[in-house]
């Protein structure tokens, strides 16, 4: 049985290798193209050049990049601040209309972001707040679409927490506020950080919503790249793309060393205790 049984496993490995090449190949090719010596986006690269990188790091591209970073950081902060208490209420408290609130929170995740974008754009104009299109409109929209991540990850870690921990602290005389600060928050901090990281990445990489809420002077890097693409392709974009992949990658990798946020990607709440 052993010899025959290993053949499917070898076939599987070959298939896995092929899929990984499909998945990572275009990204590696983008990296190679960013060092291309020629102005056309050819492959294999003709010569080696850092000029696309120096252009990608110039003020023209650094401005939208910094705008995206600021937007993503504020979005992560706000959606964590709003989402954590809500997750608390959803997991720990009983109240009427809980199902409705759960559906409301899942809404922005379930409905196409692009539709949320055109809805917010029109709503702001209808209220006479068209001037908010740009940074503030983007911030509102991004918090809406990122909130479900914060709520879900915090809810997952709250459900995974042994309830005896808080009871033990309380029975040893800790007042509720101390229990919250010294027991509950440290235990769920993984979920809080994971939610913030997902919110940051989701905001930083968003195209579908930002497209409609950006203004010419206030636009994230994804929208700036799309606008540039209409005029034609240049290897600068390869360098900008690689940079906008590396920033969240480094951030998440650093955070992963402190909190295992990767586990939240495919956490199955039903299997936690």
């Amino acid at each position: 049985m052993r010899d025959g049984a290993d053949r499917p496993w070898i076939a599987l490995r070959a298939a896995v290798a092929a899929v990984l090449v499909f998945l990572l190949g275009p990204i590696l090719i983008t990296v190679a193209a960013s060092f291309n010596g020629s102005a056309r986006s050819t492959f294999p690269p003709e010569g080696f050049s850092l000029r696309w990188w120096s252009e990608a790091l110039s003020a023209r591209w650094w401005e939208p990049m910094a705008f995206s970073l600021k937007l993503a950081a504020l979005t992560a902060l706000l959606s964590t601040a709003i989402g954590t208490p809500l997750a608390f209420a959803l997991v720990r408290r009983r109240f009427r209309g809980k199902m409705l609130v759960e559906a409301l929170v899942a809404g922005p995740l379930v409905l196409p972001t692009l539709v949320t974008g055109i809805a917010l754009l029109q709503f702001l104009h209808a209220l006479g707040l068209g001037a908010l299109v740009g940074f503030w409109g983007l911030l509102i929209g991004h918090v809406v679409i990122c909130l479900p991540f914060s709520v879900r990850t915090v809810a997952v870690s709250l459900r995974a927490m042994p309830p005896q921990l808080e009871a033990a602290a309380a029975s040893l005389g800790a007042p509720p506020r101390v229990v919250l600060r010294r027991v509950t928050l440290p235990v769920i901090s993984g979920g809080v950080f994971a939610g913030a990281a997902f919110a940051f990445v989701h905001s930083f990489t968003d195209v579908n919503l930002s497209l409609f809420l950006a203004s010419p002077g206030e636009r994230p890097v994804t929208v700036a790249v799309l606008a540039f693409l209409e005029a034609g392709f240049a290897p600068t974009l390869a360098a900008v793309s690689v940079l906008s992949l590396v920033i969240p990658l480094v951030m998440v990798a650093l955070l992963e060393r402190v909190v295992p946020i990767g586990a939240f990607l495919y956490a199955d709440p039903g299997r936690h205790r």
């Binding site: 990984l20 990572l24 275009p26 990204i27 986006s41 050819t42 990445v201 994804t222 974009l237 906008s244």
Partner: peptide
């Protein structure tokens, strides 16, 4: 490695295909 592409926007990933598929591409 399999999930890391989630950290890039759709633009990063589609741009790679443009480099591969355009008329004087890979």
């Amino acid at each position: 490695l399999s999930l890391a592409p989630l950290l890039g926007s759709a633009i990063v990933r589609s741009y790679g295909w443009h480099v591969i598929l355009n008329q004087d591409g890979a």
